[in-house]
Simulated scan of single mutants.
Amino acid sequence: MLNHLESERIAHKHSVSHSAYTAFKRLIHTIIMATAVALAVGLFLMYQQYQTHWVDVQTAQPGTSISNQYSKILQPALVAQDTVQLARLITIALEEPAVISLSVFNAQGVYIAPLPRVDSVVALARERDVAPSSHVEKILDDNGKVIGYLNVNIDTEVVLSSPLTLRQQLWLIISAVIVLALIVGVYITRGFYKFRPWIIRVFQS
């Protein structure tokens, strides 16, 4: 009789221990899944912000540099109001692969050159898979007075061609790291299941 009661007590103890282990395992799995979902959503949002910021940074510097350079080159012709020379200089500037179009305006914002008037950035964006970036630079005389404005539309695809190549190499490295992490994860999982009986015994003791 006593042996029977003792057996029932031990069986009940083992049942409670196993139930505790099962509940603990489910809790861990739930926490891991919730963390994974939260990380996935967070990474997606961060990637979206990074993508926008990366494009802005990569296109801002070349566009600013080009518009600043040509505002100084065009300044003498604008001071002399020589539209022929302005058109000639703009034609030379358009030989730059990254430059789609240049537009010159006077101090009041009235369009001057080149003629015929170039398409707006909105029209240019419709013609391309990637919208061009637009940069406006003041044209100053020798006294620092604003005598006009230069609008430069930059081909985003041309500007990003080299950075995108480097970025593809970065993604290749990241992919290799992910594959390596998966392989390590598989072996860690196998190790966990090998030690699983020992873990169960620890919880049951």
Rank of each mutant, 00 (worst) to 15 (best):
S101M: 02
T189H: 15
A87G: 03
F195T: 10
Y21M: 15
A98I: 05
D119V: 06
L124Q: 15
L140M: 04
S175V: 07
V41R: 05
V57P: 01
Y50D: 10
I10W: 03
I90P: 01
Y149T: 01
N153W: 00
S65G: 05
L94W: 05
A38G: 05
L45V: 15
I31K: 07
S103C: 06
E137V: 01
T30N: 12
Q108W: 04
Q108K: 14
S67T: 06
Q69W: 11
R167L: 15
I147S: 02
Q168R: 12
D119N: 10
S71F: 02
D142R: 11
V121A: 12
T165E: 13
D141W: 00
H18N: 09
I90N: 01
K13M: 11
Q169M: 04
G144H: 05
T22G: 06
L102C: 07
A125G: 04
A93L: 04
L182G: 07
Q51F: 13
I173N: 08
K25V: 07
S205G: 15
P114K: 04
T22I: 14
N106V: 03
D141N: 14
L160I: 08
N151V: 12
G109D: 06
H53T: 09
Y70A: 01
V84N: 13
I174W: 11
R88K: 15
L94P: 02
R167I: 02
N68K: 14
L39Q: 08
I139S: 00
Y70P: 00
R128L: 10
L5A: 09
G42Y: 11
D141R: 00
A40M: 14
A40V: 07
A87Y: 01
V79I: 14
D129T: 14
E96R: 11
S67P: 03
A98E: 08
A77M: 02
E137G: 03
P116L: 10
A123Y: 04
I183E: 03
I147R: 04
M46V: 05
N143T: 12
V179F: 06
E96S: 11
R88C: 02
E8R: 15
H18P: 03
L86E: 00
D142G: 15
L170P: 00
D119M: 13
H14F: 10
E157I: 13
R167C: 04
E8V: 06
W198N: 08
L160Y: 05
L89F: 10
Q61Y: 14
S7K: 15
Q48M: 11
Q169E: 07
P163V: 06
V37Y: 07
T91V: 02
F203A: 13
D82Y: 02
Q58K: 07
S120C: 05
L74G: 00
L124Y: 04
A20G: 11
E6S: 12
V202H: 12
V179P: 00
L45I: 15
Y47Q: 09
L164T: 09
S17M: 10
V184W: 09
A181H: 05
Q69Y: 13
S67K: 02
I199Y: 10
